[in-house]
């Protein structure tokens, strides 16, 4: 009888402790989910922001590339015209 009481006390004490741990685990899991969602939302937002930035920079670089391609031609033409003017001036003066 004595052993039985001790055994049952021990069992139910362990059960009680495990139940407390279960509740603790449940609350921890809920908190963890909450924090994880927050963290993921923040990261997602950061990624989205960086992606938007990337797109904008890409557009700008596209403009720059377009500009550079036309700019190069223009600079070349200006240089060519300047050289032709120089040639004309030299030719005129020599005459």
């Amino acid at each position: 009888m004595g052993f039985n009481i001790f055994f049952m006390c021990a069992i139910f004490t362990v059960i009680f402790a495990v139940i407390i741990i279960i509740f603790k685990t449940v609350f921890e899991t809920i908190f963890l989910k909450k924090m994880a969602n927050k963290s993921l939302i923040t990261l997602n937002n950061n990624v989205k922001n960086e992606a938007i930035k990337f797109e904008k920079n890409r557009d700008k670089l596209q403009l720059v590339d377009d500009l550079h391609s036309s700019l190069f031609d223009r600079l070349f033409k200006i240089t060519k015209d300047v050289i032709l003017v120089q040639k004309f001036i030299f030719e005129t003066n020599i005459k």
Partner: peptide, 29 residues
């Protein structure tokens, strides 16, 4: 005694499942 041990086994199983779930969640996160 048997009932007590059965309850203990059940709560331990629940705890095990919850801990596994929590760890899985952590890993996924």
């Amino acid at each position: 005694q048997i009932i007590g041990l059965s309850i203990l086994a059940i709560v331990l199983s629940i705890l095990g499942y919850l801990l596994f779930n929590q760890q899985k969640l952590k890993n996924q996160q």
